[in-house]
């Protein structure tokens, strides 16, 4: 747990226009993990990434890469970082393969056509290597951005919303590719709006809102800790109202009266389920089926943001 490859210390950014995009922010990224940064639009995700990559200068604070300041050791630090930016920006008149080799050499690596071929094959871009970039589709351009970021073999990779505008199949491919990269020892930090993506891939999840990191947690812990469970009871006979005997459980009856829903806290000592079932038996209400459902990261996320709004 205590081998951070990247440490962010008191990072703060106020843009010239006066936007306070990042409040002092601390974050440790562990070696070899996949870290997902979630947050609504304008939360400061891109700002944070841009500072680490040296595109934006922070107002205060520092970033340590393997305990070394990222500005004082910028040559080494930047060689180790790859960035896939949020926006698709590229030199549209260049052929694909030359932009990718350009990226490699720009980051101080020896030209290496073999490695470039490997990367392009992995991203299924090899057939298109001679194509001028403006003739590629959006999803292909997204892959070109990834190829450019990987071209200099970074061991820390930032993916700023890598799957925006990407079809389902390609998204699967990308997830697999990210996993393969991780197996090869690359540390990955990705931002996303798709919570299922964080749920699927990340080891740890951070939630950022209005420039503040409101939560950093192991994904499984997070799901356990904040996850509320829902019990659905499929009734044998439809009810018109929730019987008074069951009032203390705060049940919800579905519209057709065929299903009762009970929300409970899965980590509480007393979930209230045994007593509920007992009370139902006493009241003579039979059920055909029951199932419980754990709330997803999405529910947790929306809950957190709303909670913060309510507190403000």
């Amino acid at each position: 747990m205590s081998d951070p490859i990247l440490s962010i210390r008191g990072l703060e950014k106020t843009y010239g226009s006066g936007t306070h995009a990042l409040k002092p922010l601390d974050l440790d990224i562990q070696r070899g993990e996949i870290f997902a940064l979630l947050g609504p639009n304008g939360a400061g995700k891109t700002t944070m990434i841009s500072i680490v990559c040296g595109i934006v200068t922070p107002t205060a604070g520092e970033v340590l890469i393997d305990d070394k300041n990222w500005q004082r050791n910028y040559r080494e630090a930047r060689k180790r970082i790859g960035l896939v930016p949020q926006e698709l920006t590229m030199d549209v008149f260049e052929p694909l393969i030359s932009t990718v080799s350009f990226s490699r050499e720009l980051f101080g690596r020896r030209p290496d056509p073999k490695r470039i071929e490997e990367i392009l094959r992995e991203l299924s871009l090899w057939d298109k290597r001679k194509t001028i970039l403006k003739e590629l589709s959006g999803g292909m351009k997204r892959r070109v951005m990834i190829a450019k970021a990987l071209a200099h073999d970074p061991d820390i990779l930032f993916l700023d919303e890598p799957t925006a505008g990407v079809d389902v199949e390609l998204r699967r491919d990308m997830w697999n590719m990210v996993r393969r990269l991780r197996e090869n020892g690359t540390t990955i930090i990705l931002t996303t709006h798709y919570i299922e993506e964080a749920e699927e891939m990340a080891d740890r999840v951070g939630v950022i809102n209005k420039g503040e990191l409101i939560l950093v947690e192991e994904k499984t812990e997070l799901m356990k800790k904040l996850g509320r469970k829902v019990l659905h009871l499929q009734l044998a006979e439809a009810l018109e109202t929730v019987p008074a005997a069951l009032a203390e459980w705060d049940l919800k009856l579905s519209e057709d009266g065929g299903m009762l829903t009970y929300e409970f806290d899965a980590k509480a000592d007393r979930t209230g389920i045994p007593s509920l079932l007992g009370a139902m038996r006493d009241a003579g209400i039979a059920f055909k089926d029951l199932d419980t459902h754990q709330s997803s990261l999405e529910d947790i996320f929306v809950g957190l943001i709303n909670h913060q709004k309510a507190a403000a």
Partner: peptide, 16 residues
């Protein structure tokens, strides 16, 4: 031109 199109990000983040 790179500033305008946004491709400058890469040159800015390069170790030069």
């Amino acid at each position: 031109m790179p500033r305008f199109t946004g491709t400058i990000y890469e040159i800015l983040s390069a170790p030069c």
